[in-house]
Simulated assay, not measured.
Amino acid sequence: MEHVEMRNTIPALAIVIPCFNEEEVLPVTAPLFLGKLKSLIARNKIAPESCILYVDDGSRDRTWQIIRRLAKDAHIIGIRQSRNRGHQNTVLAGLMEAKDLFDITISIDCDGQDDLDAMDQMVDAYLHGYEVVYGVRSSRDEDNFCKRFTAEAFYRLMKLLGAEVVFNHADYRLISGRVLRELAEFKEVNIFLRGLVPLAGFESTSVYYKRHRRAAGKSHYPLGKMLGLAFDGITSLSARPIHTITSMGLMVSALSFVMIVWIVVCFCMGRTVQGWASTCVIASFIGGIQLLCTGVIGEYVGKIYLETKARPRYIISERTFEREDLL
């Protein structure tokens, strides 16, 4: 670790857990999260007022009812979004809710796949002076080939496009209240936290852990959603695809100019042969390039349209607590 200033105060921690249709997994993992929280409190790593903050992303099953029942414990609180707004907005809602109430937050999915013992290392790193601590998977051996290949290709592509992301890091991380208050100044509607957090700067480090299989239930992130998240991340953090389109357009234009010169020369030499193959190939190639470029540009225009509306990124409809009681 780099040399940073040690902290002497015991921080109040909020473990932020996004939930969407998790009625099967919550009864299994909730005792594990609570056990870890109480263990950290017992060893004086975090303050007694630390808690678990569940964020319901407009679930259609009994998830909110389960959260309300869990909130009978003094160390558990919950908030509910007015409708489903997606994983990234749900995590953000929890972080923004906690930023003025707690010293640090750790965001983690509720499926039990992330190693809870990594929290000890995260808190230790914070006490050593770090403001952000990333949870990074040490390997992807438990993933099938398709998921491993696409995930690693995504991180490499993001780096190639100039986006600052931590390789093999998802949304398991510790963030200090200081950093969260700065992140609150980022007003964009299209959220990709894996890229936004590094943009905030501050001292950071990583802890490495092995991911487990899901404790119960089914994943709510199929391939389609993963690809959507990847594309959102790319278009939210990097303008390089637009630059690539410009370069591609120049290249195709240059090739077309060479082709025109070649055709004129052949015509003047009387060597032209009428046929449809070359015409179809050229038309298809240029048409495909144009459609691809138009689609990418359209994505950026669509995001600009959403940003100009400045709609709220999340709306909290219910809480299991009164904020004034925690302030």
Rank of each mutant, 00 (worst) to 15 (best):
M1E: 04
R7M: 05
N8S: 13
A14L: 01
P18D: 01
P18F: 02
F20M: 07
E22N: 07
E22W: 06
T29S: 06
L32F: 02
L37V: 01
R43V: 10
N44Y: 06
A47V: 02
C51P: 04
C51S: 09
Y54D: 07
Y54H: 11
G58N: 07
R60A: 12
A71M: 08
H75Q: 13
N84I: 10
R85L: 12
R85A: 11
H87R: 14
T90K: 00
T90G: 11
G94E: 08
M96Q: 06
E97D: 12
S107M: 03
S107Q: 08
I108N: 02
D109S: 09
D114E: 08
D124H: 07
L127C: 08
G129E: 11
Y130H: 06
G135H: 05
S139C: 13
D141Y: 12
N144Y: 04
C146M: 12
F149I: 11
F149K: 09
A151S: 12
Y155K: 00
L161C: 15
E164D: 15
L174I: 01
I175G: 00
R178E: 02
L183I: 01
N190E: 15
N190Y: 08
F192A: 14
G195V: 13
A200Y: 00
A200D: 00
E203R: 10
S204G: 04
R211P: 06
R211K: 13
S219W: 03
G228V: 10
A230S: 15
F231C: 15
I234A: 01
S236M: 03
H243Q: 13
I245C: 03
T246F: 04
S253Y: 08
S253C: 12
M259P: 01
C266K: 13
G270R: 09
S278F: 05
T279Y: 03
T279K: 02
S284N: 09
Q290L: 08
C293L: 03
T294L: 09
T294C: 11
V296Q: 03
G298N: 00
Y300M: 04
Y300W: 04
Y300C: 03
I304S: 07
I304M: 14
L306T: 07
T308A: 15
T308Y: 15
A310R: 10
P312S: 09
R313T: 08
Y314A: 04
I315L: 09
I316C: 04
F321A: 04
L327R: 14
